[in-house]
Amino acid sequence: MSSPQIETVTSGADKAKLAAAGLLVVGAVAVFYLLGKQDLWLRVLALLALMAAAVGVFFTSAQGKELIAFGQDATKELRKVVWPARQEATQMTLYVFAFVVVMALFLWLTDKSLEWVLYSLILGWK
């Protein structure tokens, strides 16, 4: 059995970029609360600006570039999917609803039957 590969940050620059992104996120939250006496719009603006900077720094790292490549590959695969026609989707949805109703009735009947057998016939409770 092969062990799963673990991705680690190998480059010093990537470590610094990830650390900077983390510090920017912590700084964004800290600035939001430190500006507690300021207007809400200013606090939110500062929070969003620092978070955007953190995202920007993250996407310049190797992991950020891998994430972007993964998103692009996922989009390509999504374009290859053959989606059902509207009539087929509606028909399958109705089949699912009908199955759920039938299963609900079956489970309700099973529950009531077991309740009747146990409480009325075996225990004699009324």
Score class of each variant (00 low, 15 high):
E88I: 06
S3L: 14
F59R: 06
L109T: 15
W41K: 13
L123W: 13
T93P: 00
A19D: 08
R43H: 07
M103G: 00
L109K: 04
G27T: 05
W83V: 07
V9L: 11
R86H: 08
L114C: 08
L67W: 12
E66Q: 10
L48A: 13
A13V: 14
K15Y: 06
I122H: 15
A89D: 10
E7M: 14
V9M: 07
T110A: 14
L34F: 09
K37I: 07
M1D: 13
M51T: 14
W116H: 08
L50T: 07
K80G: 09
R86N: 11
V26P: 00
L78Y: 10
F106E: 06
F99L: 12
A28Q: 01
F99D: 09
V117M: 09
L123Y: 12
L47F: 15
L40G: 00
A19R: 02
G27I: 07
F106R: 04
F59D: 01
L34N: 08
A21W: 01
F58Q: 06
L107T: 09
A49R: 04
E66L: 06
D39T: 01
M51D: 10
L105C: 01
D73N: 10
L40Q: 11
Q91T: 07
T75C: 14
L78S: 12
L118V: 14
A16H: 05
G71D: 04
T75K: 14
L35S: 05
L121R: 15
T60Y: 03
L45T: 15
A49L: 12
A19Q: 11
K112P: 00
V9P: 00
V82S: 13
V117Y: 11
W108A: 13
A89Y: 11
T8K: 06
D14K: 02
V31W: 08
S11V: 04
